Simulated scan of single mutants.
Amino acid sequence: MFLTDDTLQPTSEKPKDLVPSRYALRIGDIDAMVVSDGPLPLPTTTMATNADPADLANWLGQMFMPPDKYDWPLNVMVARSGDQTILIDAGLGGQFPGFPRAGQFPQRLAAAGIELESITDVIITHMHMDHVGGLLVPGIKERLRPDVRIHVAKAEVDFWMSPDFSRTVMPNPVPEVLRSTAKSFYKEYRDRLQIFEERREVAPGVVVRRTGGHTPGHSVVDLVSGNERLMFAGDAMFPVAFDHPDWQNGFEHDPEEATRVRLALFRELVQSRGLLVAAHLPFPSIGRVAAEGDIFRWVPIIWDF
């Protein structure tokens, strides 16, 4: 079981995090935990590149969000199934000076009583820097087990050998940083990669499957045990997607395919009534998807504590 209760601190010691940064739950026999890696400040123009600016401004106003820049949440997950401990995505890391509040997952795992040395498997939903950068922090690789298995889709690895940014709409410095980070990740961990084509059961009830869209090898992770299920959807959806699933994000390498994938996953979640976690939904990012005609609705869980 995860250590989910904070150890009482002497009154002279102040906690490093003033708000909760992890949330634990069980999916049947699988222990799961969502961990916040911290927020990424991004321009709002990347949120919906094909939307009328007035429509986007109206949506931002309705959501009480600033018009120019917003904090993009960043979540990772840990799951325990049988004797395996699986890290799902690895956050941003600390090597990007423009995002000083992100890159928190190693110390937050430690605060939850989860040692990096205990991780048997890592699933990478895709190789953007905010999903693999945490593995490039100095000292992290040395703490991982030498036999750790890192699961990533073949289409994703192939794409980053010569990535195409022609259909993305990112801030100017970002593509080169994404390219160099993916290259560094592959160089550092190529001997530990467990490359799959379309689907792999990583542990009992823990399945990663390729969806494509956001990137060619983008994948989601299903946790299924008994009658309970949870999907970690990576970057398949963002907060605006429930109201406007056809709005395209500037970080999507194939915007039309990403829209198709997003709608298909929404419909799947409506039918299954399973839980959803996504990398960029507000922490703890746990809820369900309901449908009202052609409109989808996010239904967050009520915290259990």
Rank of each mutant, 00 (worst) to 15 (best):
S225Q: 09
G205D: 11
S285K: 01
R145H: 00
V35G: 04
V261C: 02
V299A: 09
V289H: 01
D55K: 11
G234Y: 03
L40M: 15
A155G: 04
F232I: 07
A233S: 12
K154S: 09
A241W: 02
M63N: 07
T259L: 02
F251R: 08
P138H: 05
K14C: 01
L116I: 03
L223N: 06
L40C: 08
N172V: 11
L135E: 05
H280V: 12
K14F: 09
A111R: 10
G293E: 12
L135K: 01
P39M: 09
P106D: 04
V76S: 12
N75D: 00
Q271R: 13
A48Y: 07
F96Q: 08
D304K: 13
L223I: 02
A153Y: 01
F105G: 00
K69G: 03
Q248K: 14
D89P: 04
V220S: 06
L281E: 03
S12H: 15
V177N: 11
S36W: 08
V261K: 01
A57Q: 13
L92M: 10
A182H: 05
V221S: 05
A203M: 06
T44F: 04
A79P: 05
F238N: 06
R80L: 08
Q104E: 14
Q248T: 11
L40N: 11
G38E: 09
T259P: 02
A258E: 10
R179K: 15
L135T: 03
M33P: 05
V289T: 07
S285A: 15
H214S: 14
P284V: 07
